[in-house]
C-alpha cells in the first residue's frame, strides 16, 4: 500500500467526506437512543424546582449567529419547559448581536404553544407568561443591576413596552424572585453570574453552553455553583428529550434532529485519526 500517497491526500477530499457524513444522516434520518448526562438532568430538575406562583425562570442569552445551531435549541427547550410548567419566563440578551435571534425563538415557541391552546388560560401571553427584556450593555451592568431591580435596568422591553406595565413584572422585582438564571452562551457568562450575582444575591445559576466551553464549567458543577448544564448540541438534545418525555410539548426538536449527523461526524473524525496514525507509523517503519 502507498502510505505516503494516503497521507498526502488532498484536504478537499477530507472536507467532502466530512460534508457527506453530515448530509447523509439528515437525508436518511435514523432515530438513536440517547443517554442523559447528570449535568443536564440536574439543570432540568433545578427548573422543575421553580415555584411558578412566586418565581420565574430567567434565560440570559449572549450567543451570536456564529453559535446559533448549538445555543438556539437550548433557549427554545428552556422556554418550552418554562411554558409547560407555567413558570413565567424572562429573557435578556447580554450582547446585541444575539438580540434578534431570541426574538425569533420566542415567536416560534409561543407560536407552537398557542397553536394548540384552546383558551386564554392555555395560551402563552406576552407580558403574563414571557417578557423579553432586550439588551443593555455592558454585561456587568445588567448582571449586577438585576439584583436591585429588573425593571430599573430594563425600563423598556425589546419591543418598546414599559416593563413596569407588564403583568408579570409587577411581582418579579429582582433576583429574589428568580428561581434560576440559565445563561446560554459561547463565552463565560454563567461564571459572571456566579461571580457577580450569586455571591452577592444568592441566585441559582445554570449554564447552556457551547461544547467548547463545557469542560471549563465542570468544576463549577462539581461545587454546586452551577446547578446544572446543557453542554453543546448534545446537551440541548438531552434537554429537549427530557421536556418532551415529561410534558409532550411538541414543536421542532432541532438539536435532536442533528444527533445522527453528529454521531457520523464523530466516528469519521476518529477514523481519520486512526487512519492518519496507521499511515504515519507504517511509513516511519518503512523508512
Amino acid at each position: 500500500m502507498n502510505w505516503e500517497r494516503l497521507l498526502k491526500i488532498d484536504r478537499r477530499v477530507i472536507f467532502l467526506t466530512m460534508a457527506l457524513a453530515i448530509i447523509l444522516p439528515l437525508l436518511f434520518p435514523i432515530r438513536l437512543t440517547m443517554g442523559v448526562q447528570r449535568v443536564t438532568r440536574n439543570l432540568f430538575q433545578a427548573v422543575e424546582a421553580i415555584d411558578p406562583a412566586r418565581q420565574c425562570l430567567l434565560i440570559s442569552t449572549d450567543y451570536t449567529p456564529q453559535t446559533e445551531p448549538e445555543n438556539h435549541p437550548m433557549a427554545k427547550a428552556l422556554m418550552r419547559h418554562g411554558f409547560a410548567r407555567r413558570v413565567p419566563v424572562l429573557v435578556n440578551a447580554l450582547y446585541v448581536e444575539g438580540a434578534p435571534l431570541i426574538d425569533q425563538a420566542i415567536t416560534e415557541v409561543m407560536g407552537d404553544f398557542n397553536a394548540r391552546a384552546t383558551s386564554r388560560e392555555d395560551s402563552i401571553l406576552y407580558g403574563r407568561d414571557i417578557v423579553y427584556l432586550g439588551w443593555q450593555p455592558p454585561p456587568i451592568v445588567p448582571i449586577l443591576a438585576m439584583g436591585e431591580s429588573i425593571t430599573g435596568i430594563y425600563p423598556d422591553d425589546y419591543y418598546g413596552n414599559r416593563t413596569d406595565s407588564l403583568e408579570v413584572m409587577r411581582r418579579i422585582r429582582n433576583y429574589a424572585d428568580v428561581g434560576i438564571v440559565v445563561a446560554i452562551t459561547p463565552l463565560s457568562s454563567p461564571l459572571w453570574y456566579v461571580q457577580f450575582a450569586q455571591t452577592k444575591y444568592g441566585v441559582k445559576v445554570g449554564a447552556g453552553c457551547t461544547a467548547v466551553c463545557a469542560p471549563d464549567f465542570y468544576p463549577y458543577c462539581a461545587t454546586g455553583q452551577l446547578s446544572g448544564m446543557m453542554a453543546g448540541m448534545k446537551g440541548a438534545a438531552e434537554y429537549e428529550e427530557l421536556v418532551e418525555q415529561k410534558y409532550r410539548t411538541g414543536g421542532r426538536l432541532k438539536a435532536t434532529e442533528g444527533m445522527a449527523s453528529q454521531s457520523a461526524a464523530h466516528v469519521l473524525i476518529m477514523v481519520f485519526v486512526i487512519l492518519g496514525n496507521v499511515a504515519y507509523f507504517a511509513m516511519r517503519r518503512k523508512s
Partner: peptide, 20 residues
C-alpha cells in the same frame, strides 16, 4: 456568521488526519 464558524468542522477533520 454561522457558516464562518462551521468552517472549523472541516479543518478539524483535516487536522485530525494530518496532525494527531
Amino acid at each position: 456568521g454561522a457558516s464562518m464558524f462551521s468552517l472549523l468542522a472541516f479543518y478539524m477533520a483535516s487536522a485530525a488526519y494530518r496532525s494527531f
